[in-house]
């Protein structure tokens, strides 16, 4: 009997099938309905934008790995996810070179320079989106509308809400995504399907999205005094994309259930403040980035005490 090459390792000797790579692939899968709606509504250029940004993100991570002579990490698919999320957060008319620059910012500056996946404190896609928005106000800050939408107004629903009026599109159009906004953020229905899938598959928990969306809904109701007004605020802008897919990023948000609840509530509150009183019509990205910074503290406050642990002197 050949006993020479037995592997000796510390238990456990079996692992769950779910890996970093499979998690990332499932999140990408869950984003596909919203991305597909974006392509249908905004046209083939949107598809080109999605593909080039995703490919660029993977390429930048590959180049960074090679240049720093570190093991390749593109196989974990997190770079692809970041690229896809970035494209979905950009207007469908963004010049490709700007989107590719955004991918470089997200991957190289926000993620890899901090140590790669797991060590970045801010959400790469969101940070890159904010930088692009400030740098290229004309293109990335632009209001872009789907093809065939009967344009009554040239403002996005949130910009209209900002002026105190209801959006010129119906609530149903807001829910289905027939309104102005970023490539992948307009169709609340598709994002909801993806988000529910992630919760059902136990990839994310319900705490952050429910707290985030719930806070925005309640706050908007208090301000407008009508269910319609509250729904208009809730279904507009990047709330669903942010709440289900970016405020739930493992790396940059708390890992405890109460921490996630607080994180979602904080995001909701900041979003409301920016939407109601800020210079920008939309505050989802800023709110998530700000809460990213608070994450270590929220985590610390909400850690559970070890069971059976007695106080030490």
């Amino acid at each position: 009997m050949d006993n020479q090459n037995l592997i000796v390792s510390v238990s456990p000797h079996i692992r769950t099938a779910r890996s970093t790579r499979s998690l990332m692939l499932e999140v990408i899968f869950a984003l596909l309905p919203a991305a597909a709606v974006g392509v249908v509504f905004f046209g083939l250029y949107a598809l080109a934008l999605l593909l080039s940004t995703t490919a660029a993100a993977v390429l930048f991570e590959y180049l960074y790995n090679r240049l720093t002579k570190k093991p390749l990490t593109i196989g974990d698919c997190s770079a692809a996810l970041t690229g896809l999320l970035l494209a979905m957060n950009l207007p469908a008319t963004t010049p490709i070179w700007q989107a590719v620059l955004g991918a470089a910012i997200a991957i190289v500056i926000v993620k890899m320079l901090f140590g790669g996946l797991g060590y970045n404190f801010a959400n790469p896609a969101i940070t890159a989106r904010i930088i692009l928005m400030i740098a290229f106000t004309d293109s990335v800050g632009a209001a872009v509308f789907p093809r065939g939408v009967d344009l009554v107004s040239t403002a996005t629903p949130l910009a209209e809400l900002k002026t105190g009026s209801m959006p010129s599109v119906s609530l149903l159009d807001l829910f289905l995504g027939r309104c102005g906004g970023a490539l992948g953020e307009t169709c609340a229905l598709a994002l909801l399907i993806g988000g529910v899938y992630l919760i059902a598959r136990k990839i994310i928990t319900w705490h952050t999205p429910v707290a985030f969306i719930g806070t925005v809904f309640l706050g908007s109701y208090l301000r407008t005094g009508t269910i319609e007004g509250a729904l208009a605020y809730t279904l507009s802008g990047g709330l669903f994309l942010g709440a289900f897919f970016m405020a739930t990023d493992y790396v940059t948000t708390p890992s405890t259930k109460w921490g996630r609840t607080i994180f979602g509530f904080g995001c909701g509150l900041l979003t409301l403040l920016i939407r109601f009183y800020g210079a920008y019509p939309e505050g989802v990205s800023f709110s998530i980035l700000l809460m990213n910074i608070l994450t270590p503290y929220i985590e610390h406050w909400t850690l559970e005490r070890p069971r059976g642990g007695v106080a030490h002197e």
């Binding site: 970093t20 998690l23 990490t73 974990d76 140590g115 790669g116 996946l117 797991g118 060590y119 493992y250 790396v251 940059t252 708390p254 890992s255 405890t256 259930k257 850690l303 559970e304």
Partner: peptide, 11 residues
């Protein structure tokens, strides 16, 4: 690979 901070171990 790197810890993702997913919290599955704690929960």
């Amino acid at each position: 690979t790197n810890c993702l901070h997913c919290g599955k171990c704690q929960s």
